[in-house]
Design a protein around this nucleic acid. Structure first.
Length: 554
DNA sequence: CGTTGCAGCGCG
DNA sequence: AAAGCGCGCTGCAACG
């Protein structure tokens, strides 16, 4: 059963009930905005509908702030995007473009933490957007598109996964990552010195800059300027081509160690220093915004505070509240396992029966050399042509012809300008006009550039099928996990999802609930595998750590 | 002056 | 140890 949520012209809100095939199942209900949370909660409890909206952002943050959580939804915008591009669907036109939603005012402030509890937040700011009729029409078009597609089951699952993702994303933003400001500030003081008053560098960072200036004989140097730094390096006889840390490491000069240390410290100061704490952590929580399917491959992106790049350096500040634990889990070697399943490469799947896939593959054909097996496999997924990983490709091809052929096919398709598609049906974007023009060009110089562009695109599509399908597995994993945590919560066993990072999740759980949450993580992984790949002989083990702070995990 | 692109580094 | 994929954020440098 579907329940459409829409603004009505008179400033109230319309609810429209449809049956499971999308037909009207009764008269509309119109309610004042202030009554919405109560009504939604009642319907959720009695009917358990699939809520239909343009985008979760219109409704769910405010429902959450009123204390209402929902089981499932159909997010028309997310589904419109994937159905429009999917190679599984036929002609399908939608006006539900996501483009206008992506235009954000530059420099906009971080969203305030949703206030808790009382009153209806719908009173303050009305919902804008399509009417119930428009939403109903769009839903019908989407359901038809799915039913008429080459893989209705897969697309239904993908729509459900992205929609569940929209719910989890809003819930995680509302919950926030528990962040211990004191620990973070102590760590900053230890490494950088006391917080500076104005805009100058902190003491230890300035000391390090001076040490560097002395070593280079460049008293006025601003080490943050790549151009100045490059000139100073050259004057000191260091013939670096770039100022990248790993290239500089090769030089034996006495200025290099302080320079590398400076870069490390400067990065901490700029990216995750006091200003970051002020901007992004409130009431002991870091609340980033998650952008479901914000990456072409279907991975999530985030906005605000660099939530998907929390450096190892500061992870000790991610700390469970008193009486709580963090349950941190990650899927082991997710992408190679996805490749084995996608390519139906049973030999590779057999090697992956091992909890350590790389060790299994090393034993099967790399003389037990785990490092070699890893480099070879990642090279196949990323499209490495040179270096060690390029040299190992023939060996990998002999061992796992099906898996290698699968990614090679994706690469060839991309080079020819075709799109490629994940297991559940997310397709890569078509090549740009510019790219296609370049491919048609005739001059020798242009041909050279065209070949290079074709190879670039081949590497992209090669990786797309694997990264994208891995993202689907991971989204099904957290969707399943979310349902299990809701069931546990109903029994008084309390843990909430607070972080998701491609192949990793974090639950903030009451101490007594941690073990049950860990089990739920494992069961959700098994369920996700079954949803995507049925009984294919591939395993997706997860490693789980129950810890007090994030740095203690793995 | 504000905007845009790039280099560099963080994460998976 | 450092090539191949996908991102976000920062400060500097160049552009209009």
């Amino acid at each position: 059963m579907y329940e459409i949520l829409a603004p009505s012209p008179d400033g109230q809100i319309v609810l429209r009930t449809l049956d499971s095939s999308g037909l009207r199942a009764g008269p509309d209900t119109t309610v004042p905005r202030s009554d919405l949370p109560g009504l939604v909660a009642r319907l959720e409890a009695s009917q358990r509908p699939r809520w239909v909206w343009r985008t979760a952002a219109d409704w769910y943050p405010r429902l959450l702030a009123s204390g209402v959580t929902l089981r499932r939804c159909h997010d028309l915008m997310l589904c419109a995007t994937l159905l429009t591009n999917s190679a599984y669907t036929g002609a399908y036109a939608t006006s539900f473009t996501s483009s206008d939603d992506l235009i954000e005012q530059p420099g906009s402030l971080p969203p305030a933490a949703p206030p808790q509890g009382q009153g209806s937040l719908f009173e303050e700011e009305p919902v804008h957007g399509p009417s119930a009729d428009e939403l109903e029409r769009e839903l019908a078009a989407q359901l038809r598109s799915i039913a008429d597609s080459a893989h209705p089951g897969r697309l239904r699952l993908l729509c459900a996964a992205d929609s569940a993702g929209a719910l989890v994303a809003a819930e995680m933003q509302a919950a926030g990552i528990p962040w211990d400001v004191e620990t973070h500030e102590r760590l900053l003081a230890d490494q950088l010195g006391p917080r500076p008053r104005g805009f100058e560098r902190p003491g230890r960072l300035e000391d390090k800059a001076n040490e560097l200036r002395t070593q280079l004989g460049a008293p006025g140097l601003n080490p943050d300027s790549p151009q100045e730094l490059m000139r100073a390096l050259h004057r000191a006889g260091i013939e670096a081509r770039t100022t990248r840390a790993w290239e500089l490491r090769e030089f034996g000069h006495a200025a290099i160690p302080p320079l590398l240390e400076y870069k490390k410290m400067a990065r901490l100061f700029a990216a995750n220093g006091w200003a970051w704490l002020d901007a992004w952590v409130r009431d002991g929580r870091f609340r980033p915004e998650y952008v479901v399917a914000g990456v072409v491959t279907g991975r999530w992106a985030s906005r605000g505070g660099g939530a998907l790049q929390i450096p190892k350096q500061v992870r000790s500040a991610v700390r469970a509240r008193p009486g709580h634990k963090l349950v941190v889990a990650d899927a082991s070697q997710l992408e190679p396992r996805v490749l084995a399943a996608l390519a139906r490469d049973d030999a590779m799947a057999a090697a992956a029966r091992d909890a350590d896939l790389y060790a299994g593959i090393a034993a099967a054909g790399f003389g037990g050399d785990r490092a070699k097996a890893k480099v070879a496999l990642l090279g196949a997924i990323y499209g490495a042509t040179t270096g060690e990983s390029g040299r190992l490709m023939p060996q990998l091809t002999r061992l796992y012809p099906r898996a290698v052929a699968f990614v090679e096919q994706a690469a060839r398709d991309g080079e020819r300008g075709l799109t490629v598609t994940t297991h559940l049906g997310r397709s890569s974007p078509a090549p740009s006009e510019r790219w296609q023009r370049l491919q048609r060009s005739t001059s020798a110089e242009e041909q050279r550039r065209a070949d290079a562009a074709a190879r670039d695109r081949g590497r992209f599509t090669r990786n797309f099928v694997v990264q994208g399908t891995a993202a689907e597995w991971a989204e099904c994993w957290i969707a399943e996990l979310r349902q299990q945590l809701r069931r546990l919560a109903a029994l008084g066993v309390k843990g909430e999802l607070v972080y998701f990072l491609h192949d990793e999740v974090m639950i903030h759980a009451e101490e007594e609930a941690a073990a049950a949450c860990a089990d739920a993580v494992q069961e959700a992984a098994t369920a996700a595998k079954r949803l995507l790949f049925g009984d294919a002989p591939v395993q997706f083990p997860v490693s789980i750590a129950v810890v007090d702070s994030y740095d203690q995990a793995k």
